[in-house]
Design a protein around this nucleic acid. Structure first.
Lengths: 254, 254
DNA sequence: GTATGCATGAATGTAAACAATATTTTTGTT
DNA sequence: AACAAAAATATTGTTTACATTCATGCATAC
């Protein structure tokens, strides 16, 4: 693979394009630009592929194959894989790295852990959230409701994730935000399951509205109670889907 | 650096020794042996250095320097650093990777998050812990008490960490165990602070014993209440130490 | 026919080389 | 002496090369 001159045309045939070299404005210098490093790009693509089920649970992740597929060398793939393992989306065994397989029990555990963290987050959000953050919370909710009306499922999912992360951010607790983010990434693998049920989106919006209002009213008990109930509802639905409709995504081992 | 033949004498002068090549027993084959990879070794050494304060908060972590110090190439160091960042022990900025600096507020948040997770863990441990695990829990407690009597602080700390992780394990929830482990690693940076206070070790043992007995008695409320109280006590002490004795470890920014 | 041994290939860990940027030092000019 | 330009250095991202281990297949021996 001959190296293309000065990165001008990106990396390689069908490979990941790195940075726009054309932009010769201020701050054309690259390193601290917009985190366009191959490792991160590959990581995000792999994460998305796992969340969307393109990479099926239990599937082996081979450095060489992925490097070829993404048109990069093994190194960024390798680093991305290790990060996936550290984050729990992949598992490392004696015979390689594999997409973490989720049993129904695991999913239940995932959602339960998430509940504990979100409970704390909602309490702290009530105590510490600024008025500005309250407004932003409202805005996120509006986005979700608009997305519902227009049937933008992907947007709704993103906003949902955003809402829960924002509540954690309001709590002003770095480690909590870190943990919530990591959990959101893991929960992302099953979050989409429930939203196709008729009426679930509307119901979910209703619950979200109650949560937001409890937080805005700075009612600690109500906020925690509401969010817990919301998450338990989601858990119940997702678990029942996993148990009834076998093989929600291919390759699963239950 | 000329590569030594067959890894016979380890890597390089003063470098990290990789595997004993002498062991030609069964399973002398290496890859899946005991995870003696340089990346992991470097990671563990860096983690330990951060927890012990040898690498001070805010200090920059330079690939080249660390590679030289450990006598390995940049590759394993690089991977280890990315894992530290992912785990929260280091932070990446535009100008490099640095040991995460902890403010008193951060520490409070850390311990608060830990409390939420441990609370869930204790509940689940009561519900799901096997008798065998209960016995193991007792054993860990015995180790701690013995360590206290003999003044083995390092051993006590390890057992303390072990105890809390074991409670999570009893809960039979993979993601919770993952999160607790990660938090224990972060909390490890300040856990040692309180134990030098006169009487704190004995008090802590007492509280641990109460926790263990509540779990053994399968008393959910008592278990959760006791562990929360234990963690709040620790938090209170650690925070007061950080606030009173300024600069508990050098380089800190409060 | 089964089993042992060796060769081949694939996958991965590690190191070194290469490329590019950020920073510092030096140098030159005013 | 002070500032600007340029060179040198340092740091990091990425690729490539090499070493080792593990799996597979084939050949040979019993």
């Amino acid at each position: 693979m001959s190296r293309s001159v000065l990165y001008e045309t990106g990396r390689t045939s069908s490979g990941i394009r790195r940075r726009e070299v054309g932009s010769i404005g201020p701050c054309a210098a690259g390193r601290s630009a917009a985190s366009e490093y191959l490792t991160e790009i590959v990581y995000k693509r792999l994460e998305a592929a796992i969340l969307e089920g393109c990479l099926t649970p239990g599937q082996q992740l081979l450095e060489t194959a992925l490097a070829k597929e993404y048109g990069v060398s093994r190194t960024p793939v390798r680093e991305a894989l290790k990060l996936l393992v550290k984050g729990g989306l992949a598992e490392i065994t004696s015979s390689g790295i594999f997409v973490t397989a989720l049993t129904v029990k695991d999913v239940r555990g995932l959602l339960q852990t998430s509940q504990a963290l979100q409970g704390l987050a909602s309490r702290l959000a009530v105590e510490r959230g600024t008025e500005e953050q309250m407004v932003q919370l409202e805005q996120i909710l509006s986005v979700m409701e608009a997305a519902t009306a227009q049937g933008y499922l992907q947007q709704w999912i993103a906003a949902d994730k955003n809402l829960h992360t924002h509540i954690a951010l309001m709590g002003d607790n770095k480690s909590l935000v870190r943990m919530v983010r990591q959990m959101e990434s893991l929960v992302g693998r099953v979050r989409h399951l429930a939203i196709h049920l008729p009426g679930r989106l509307a119901q979910s919006n209703l619950e979200h509205r109650r949560i937001v209002e409890a937080i805005r009213a700075r009612n600690t008990e109500l906020a925690e109670q509401t969010i817990q109930e919301h998450l338990r509802n989601g858990e119940r639905l997702i678990v029942s889907i996993l148990q009834n409709f076998v093989v929600p995504f291919a390759g699963e081992r239950f």
